Amino acid sequence: MQQLIDNFDRKFEYLRLSITDECNFKCNYCLPDGYQRTHQKQFLSQIEIKNLVNAFAELGTKKVRITGGEPSLRKDFSAIISTISKTKGIQKVATTSNGFSLQKQAKDWFDAGLDAINVSVDSLDPKMFHLITGKNIFDKVMQGVSAAVAVGFTQVKINSVLMKGLNDTNLNLYLAWIQDKPIQLRFIELMQTEDNLEFFNKHHLSGELIKQNLLKNGWTQKMGLCHDGPAQVFTHSDYQGEIGLIMPYSKDFCKSCNRLRVSSLGRLHLCLFGEEGVDLRDLLSSADDKEALKARILTALSNKKESHYLQQGNVGGTPHLASIGG
């Protein structure tokens, strides 16, 4: 079987698939002025998604994360989950959501075949949550998190973008919250994009500070699985929950890269940063083009670079994180 392996012997078993770049939040680190549509193209259809995921599965992909924008803005979101979950070879289907529809939809998504969910909660303080997201719906999102746990998701992950002067004082609040809950809390370092240099310089904070704090207080690092994401995960015997740290500016971050991205318009991105992507869409409407699609993906992968070079300030062509699915 052909495998997605690049020139640096990295194996790619994880696909992040965006199904829309629309979002209904105005997070200050991503879309502070709200979503502005910059194209007239339609997002990938269910048929295109089915053909795409089939090709990736035959190349060894085992996990698909459905992203956006906000993926639940698609009215056919549950049907898309079902299509992907039924694909031969796909072992895990996950999504990342802002939680706006989670309370109402958690059971439908679970029943459709969703295995795991990450919810963006950038502060446990309702006022700070409102300030960061532009939405005064903290309680609604938290009720959604509780609903996800109740319907049977074995572990709900919470994403929090770490920002100096905004939510960096919340650590003790977060730790108390996960003490008796099966939740993995993930702090993500703020990343620089084309449109946020001033914000980045003001609010970027290294996750290394939290890592050293955790290790000093009895937390131990857990070994990851081959198709896990880039988080360094820490556990503690006194806590039911876990802490994950995603630190793209850390040394050798790209060494364990195992994921590729496809945008909601059908472009393959080898990295979140630094390149314009390869168009796959002309090969997605018919299953008859599967071998040509696989060949194009493999050819593109041969051009993947060793690093994202974020440390050198390279943000490539990424206007904001919602543009290709974060």
Rank of each mutant, 00 (worst) to 15 (best):
Q2N: 11
Q2E: 13
Q3Y: 08
F8T: 05
E13R: 06
Y14W: 06
D21W: 14
C23I: 14
N24C: 10
F25G: 03
K26S: 13
P32L: 14
D33Y: 12
G34S: 08
Q40M: 07
L44F: 05
I47Q: 05
E48H: 04
I49T: 01
I49W: 08
K50P: 02
K50Y: 01
K50C: 00
L52G: 10
L52E: 04
N54F: 14
N54P: 14
A55I: 13
A57M: 05
E58L: 15
E58I: 07
L59D: 01
G60F: 12
K75Q: 03
D76W: 15
S78T: 07
T83D: 03
K86G: 01
T87I: 12
K88L: 08
Q91S: 01
V93R: 00
V93K: 00
T96W: 03
S97D: 06
N98I: 09
N98F: 12
S101Y: 13
S101A: 07
K104V: 10
W109D: 00
F110N: 00
D115T: 14
I117S: 00
V119R: 06
L124T: 11
L124Q: 03
L124N: 08
P126E: 05
P126K: 09
L131G: 02
I132M: 09
N136I: 08
N136D: 15
D139E: 11
D139W: 01
D139Q: 13
D139P: 09
K140W: 07
G152L: 13
Q155T: 06
V156M: 09
I158G: 11
S160G: 06
V161T: 03
L162V: 03
M163C: 02
Y174A: 07
L175N: 05
D180K: 12
K181L: 12
P182E: 15
L185D: 02
R186Q: 06
F187P: 02
F187V: 04
M191T: 05
D195T: 15
E198K: 09
F199G: 01
H203N: 07
L205M: 06
N213S: 07
W219K: 00
Q221D: 08
M223E: 13
G224S: 13
G229V: 04
P230M: 10
H236T: 00
Y239V: 09
E242C: 09
E242N: 09
I243E: 12
I243L: 11
S250M: 14
K251W: 09
C254N: 04
C254W: 12
S256R: 11
S256I: 10
C257F: 10
N258V: 07
V262C: 07
S264H: 11
R267L: 09
G274S: 04
G274T: 03
G274P: 15
E276S: 12
R281L: 06
K290H: 03
L293T: 04
L293Y: 10
L293F: 13
L293N: 06
A295E: 14
I297V: 13
L298C: 07
S302M: 05
S302G: 02
K305M: 05
K305S: 04
E306Q: 15
Y309W: 10
Q311L: 11
V315K: 02
G316T: 13
G317Y: 14
T318C: 11
L321W: 12
I324K: 01
G326W: 06
